[in-house]
Structure formats: structure tokens, C-alpha cells
Amino acid sequence: MTEQPPKTNETLLSRRRLLGGVAAAGAAAAIAPPAVAAAGPAAHRREAAPTGTYRIDMHVHFLPPEYRASLLAHGHFTIGGYPTPDWSPESAIDFMDRYGIQAQALSVSDPGVEFLSGTEAAEMARYCNTYAADLFTQYPTRFGGLAVLPMHDIPTALRELEYALDTLHLDGVVLLSAYDGAYLGDPRFEPLMLALNARSAYVFVHPAAIPADAKPELPLPDFLEEFTFDTTRAATLLIAGGTLARYPSIRFQLAHAGGTLPFLAHRIGIASQTPLGDIWPAGTPKPSILDVAKHINNFYYDTALSPAPSAMRSVLAVGQKERIVFGSDWPFSATTLTGSGDPQPELSETFSAGDRVLIERENALRELPRLASVLD
């Protein structure tokens, strides 16, 4: 990456540093929903889900042919421990039709284009973004798209951001939780955050695979646990590093119900008022309980692999249902979604039918006006 600040103790918020700190501290058109009040959780009861093809999928991936071929050529036979799947527009539409999904906001998953370097990474980002935009023309009411950026070089990433949003008219951006061990709250990403804020951009934060030397050796694939932890680290450092305070117009969506962030919300808020505050990174603002609560409330949370009451009620305890969006995590969830019907029936254990329309459709379209305009 070019034009980076030096990796000092004051500027680098790294995986290893965070892990060490934690260890130390631990010493509707087609919709016909019933007329149900949308006030609170449908406590311990399951209501019939709305019917029709109405869902907007905000956590869903695509692997254009050249991108997938390049992944395999560079040894990425699995993503987060899951075999690298096949993908095509036709298979995506078949999936959507079987599960009542009207449109998908496509994004690439981990590792983004970061398995490449220099010009190759920039060219692959342009290829993926152009491929997504071409789908708008071929299937205007079925696909949206989030731009992938070549994050190893921030000036190049800024140029791709401008092209993707101004020329290709993509709906937002996908960022990984960390790049080269530095999380999104790191100062090296400040120019990008400034540009995203100026555009009031919608940004989907997707977890990245953890380097082997920064995680315990467990016989489990990363997507089961480590992905959720990395989402939590990114969100925490966006708060602790002051990014959210400086750039309030960026709309951040956290994958998988925010990982473990809802559970840790209070703990994170009191951290700066405990002995941990004495070793807080120099030059980094110490968040107060109120600051943390406000920022956690303002995140968007998706339901991908997290529709159960244990996850959704945790989100509602710290967030708001107007900022929960539907996500299928397809095609990486393909082995669990092989039939048809309601893709996440567990949502009805927490939400009314009216709330489900809000979460599975209306919240997404409010945030993606280009996609909303073609679906009206």
C-alpha cells in the first residue's frame, strides 16, 4: 500500500495488538402481511411470514468468472473454510425465485481483491465492479451492487470509488474488516473514510479471514466463529478510533448481526473508565458509555446466518429494527438453503409480519435509492 503512515504503536490498530489487549483485560406490492402492530418483538410466538417475492438481500455474494478463476489460481480453494462456490446470474435468480427475494445487492466476499497486488488488484476490482453494473442492464430489477476497492493502495482505491459510484452507479461499497492486519479504524484509511463520508456512502463491512499467527489453532472453519469476532473487532475500532464520530454520514452495515458486538456493547462502553483506560492507545479518543451506545445504535445489522431469537433480540437490545436488513449469505449458505419458501423462518420468533416486511425489504430500499427507483 502506498502513502501509508508508519506502523507505530500510536497509529497501528492491529489484530495482534487488539488480541493482546483483550487478553490483558480479561485477566410491498406483492406483499400481503397481516395487520399486526410493529411495536416490539413477537415474544415467544411464531407468526406467518409475509408472502410474495419481496425480499431485498443485503448480504449476498457473487463470483464473476474471471474473479473465481483467479481465486482458484492463487490457491483460494476455500473462503473462510467453505469451499469456493460456483456462481452465475442464472443460479442467483433461481435462488431468489425459490426464496421470495426480489433483488440482491451483490458484493464479493473475503478476500476481496487483496490476494492480488498492484495493477492486478486494481484491474480485478474494475472487472468485478463493471460486471455488477452490467447486470443492472441485463436484469434491472434483480440486482444491485456494492463496489470492491483495491485497498492495498488508498489513492487507487479512491479512484475506483469515484468510478464505481459516479460512472457505474453502484449502490455502495463493501469493505473487509481488516487489511494487512490493520482494522478499518486505523488512520491509514482516513482518506477513504473522508471520501465515503462526503458521499454519505452505504458501506457493508464483511469479515476477513484471520491470519494463522493471530488466532488459536482450532479444528473449525473461520466462518463459524472467527468471522463474527473479526466483525466485532472492526466495529469496536471504528468506535474507539473515532472514525464514526468524525464521519457520521457513512452508513455501516455489519455482517452476521454485528458478530458479538451486541453482547459486548456495555463492556466496550465501560472500558475507558476501568484500568484498561490507562493503557488506551495514545492519541485515540476514549469512548464513553453514551458514545458507544449511540454508535452501536446507529450501525446497520444484517440477518445472514443470524436469524435466531438469540441474535435478533440481542440486536434489538442495543439497536433498532429500522436498521436491521435481510441477508442470505448465498452462495456460501447454499448447503443450508436447498429448497424453497421462507429462507429465515426463525425471524418470526422475534418479529411480527409487519416488522419482517420492514426488515426484509423497506429498510434496504430506503438506503439504496438507485435500486429502489427501478423497483417502484
Rank of each mutant, 00 (worst) to 15 (best):
T2V: 14
E47L: 15
A255R: 00
D171C: 10
A201E: 02
F351R: 06
R370H: 15
A133H: 08
V173W: 07
L196I: 11
E225V: 13
I154D: 03
W330Q: 12
D278A: 15
R45P: 06
L218F: 13
D213S: 09
A27M: 13
G283V: 04
G277V: 12
F229W: 13
T243S: 11
P85F: 09
D230Y: 02
R233W: 04
F263Q: 03
N9H: 15
V108S: 01
G100K: 12
L168V: 11
S340I: 08
V174M: 14
I210L: 13
A234E: 03
L19C: 12
T338I: 13
R68I: 05
H206N: 04
I79R: 06
L371Q: 06
D134M: 10
F229H: 13
R313A: 06
R188P: 01
L72Q: 05
T130C: 09
L192R: 02
A48H: 11
V60A: 00
Y131W: 15
T119W: 14
I270S: 04
I79N: 02
E120N: 10
F143E: 07
H266G: 07
A164G: 05
P33R: 09
R159Q: 14
N197A: 11
L176R: 09
A164E: 02
R17K: 11
A24F: 12
A73K: 08
A32C: 07
T119D: 14
P207C: 11
E346L: 06
A255S: 15
T350A: 04
V148A: 10
L347H: 02
C128H: 00
I93A: 01
R251V: 09
R199K: 10
L196F: 03
T156C: 09
A317F: 09
T284K: 07
S14M: 01
I296M: 11
P111F: 11
V203G: 05
A195L: 03
P111G: 05
G144N: 05
V318K: 04
V374Q: 03
F136I: 00
A293P: 06
W280S: 01
Y300S: 00
A30M: 12
Y131H: 13
L13K: 07
E3C: 07
F229Y: 12
Y82E: 10
A133P: 01
I93K: 05
D329R: 10
G242Q: 00
P50G: 11
P191K: 07
L116T: 08
R323M: 07
R159F: 02
D57G: 04
L13C: 03
E226I: 04
H295F: 09
R55D: 03
S306Y: 08
D134Y: 00
D291I: 09
T119G: 11
T274V: 01
F351E: 02
P211S: 00
A235Y: 00
T338M: 10
G283T: 02
T303P: 06
N298R: 11
Q320L: 12
E47P: 01
A23S: 14
V148P: 07
T274H: 10
L220N: 09
T2R: 15
F332M: 09
M312A: 11
Y300A: 05
A35L: 15
E114I: 10
F223W: 04
D97I: 02
L254F: 06
S373Q: 13
L337R: 09
S70A: 15
L237N: 08
M312Q: 14
P219D: 14
F263D: 02
F189D: 00
A240N: 08
P262L: 08
